[in-house]
Amino acid sequence: MVLESTLRNIRLVGDGTLKIVERIGATVVFLGLTLTQSATSFRRFDLVIREIFYAGVQSLIIIMVSGLFVGMVLGLQGRETLQNYGSEQSVGVLVALSLVRELGPVVAALLFASRAGSAITAEIGLMKATEQLSAMEMMAINPMARVVAPRFWGGVISMPLLAMLFSAMGIIGGFLVAVVLIGVDDGAFWSQMQAAVDFRHDIANGIIKSLVFGIAVSAIATFEGYEASPTAEGVYGATTRTVVS
């Protein structure tokens, strides 16, 4: 029956939607739980510093190199197009605004999720699979406070710094291509950029955006690791889900 198969398909859509909503809800609850268990992280900040190292410092190279290249491409392509309108000096504005407002936070968050987020998921998932989390619980230590919260805060602190580095490197990349290689006027490049980019509206908003992405990525990464089924396949699946979602 046509009606029946239509109904079944609609039911599938409903089922899928409910599962997604359930997962989001569970992540938010988990985030709340992480926040309530965060006191330890701040009382013993060396735990967080360790995680900033693993999440932030180890993502530094990939973020800076990607930023540089994205900026170079923007500078090159932007100038080609703007040249048609005789306003190639505005290439600085184009590079700076697209990086600071959008590309910086978004692309840095993507790179961060695939580099550091997946590592956090895999690490927590493996700790679960090898009963390290259970062992901790049996030692009367809450793994949420000792394992999850420091990783969460390490990610949240690293993310805006990485996004800003990405944007700054991108602008340097755009400058290298447009001014040094092609020969757009140096002064016009910077002055037009400064006139167009507003600190509060563009830069501060970009930083806030990256902070929100940092919270989301860290919460998802820790959640997926903590909820991973304790097998190799489970950890693998959770790692993939972190990057995808």
């Binding site: 700076a96 944007s167 700054a168 602008i171 910077w190 950029m193 400064q194 980019v197 600190f199 830069i203």
Partner: peptide
């Protein structure tokens, strides 16, 4: 850099 060189702070 972002605040002073790129932005208008």
């Amino acid at each position: 850099v972002l605040a002073f060189k790129v932005g208008n702070l």
